[in-house]
């Protein structure tokens, strides 16, 4: 006779392996990133507004609670960058004849662009402030 048994996966399946835990943490970076983007949206509105609006936004960034929150956002954003870049060699395949560009070049290119953009942003900030 047949009586197939159907297993059910527990709701905390991601706790069963380090690999799954890391995946969950990666996915959860959406929370700190969302919070910062909302902060940035209000910042951009302030920058498009009056000096007073902008000064208020800058003051808000200096608030101790805000500093703590932003630290949390930065950690999340960095972990997002690290894990996102890791995936790019799997998705971007550059074929050269019968070979594919080694994964480390794709990864390296992303970090290079990251570094370049950070530098540009820093230069713009220094130049404008």
């Amino acid at each position: 006779m047949r009586k197939p048994y159907h297993s059910t996966e527990p709701a905390n399946w991601y706790m069963e392996k380090p690999f799954y835990k890391r995946y969950m943490l990666r996915e959860l970076t959406c929370v700190p990133i969302a919070l910062y983007v909302l902060n940035l949206m209000s910042g951009v509105v302030a920058l498009a507004g009056s000096l007073f609006d902008w000064q208020a936004w800058v003051q808000m960034q200096k608030n101790p609670l805000m500093l703590l929150l932003v630290l949390f956002c930065l950690i999340g954003a960095v972990f997002h960058t690290v894990t996102w870049f890791e995936t790019t060699p799997k998705v971007m395949k550059v074929q050269q004849g019968e070979q594919f560009l080694p994964e480390k070049y794709i990864l390296g290119a992303h970090w290079a662009v990251f570094g370049l953009l950070a530098l540009i942003l820093l230069i713009i900030a220094i130049a404008c402030a």
């Binding site: 990133i33 910062y36 983007v37 902060n39 940035l40 910042g43 800058v58 003051q59 960034q61 200096k62 805000m66 500093l67 932003v70 956002c73 930065l74 954003a77 960095v78 997002h80 960058t81 996102w84 870049f85 992303h110 662009v113 990251f114 953009l117 950070a118 942003l121 820093l122 900030a125 402030a129």
Partner: peptide, 18 residues
């Protein structure tokens, strides 16, 4: 977000305000 967010956070919320 992966490319620019960390830098934006540091510059806009820490370096510039202080």
């Amino acid at each position: 977000a992966a490319l620019v967010l960390p830098a934006l956070i540091v510059v806009l919320s820490w370096l510039l305000p202080f």
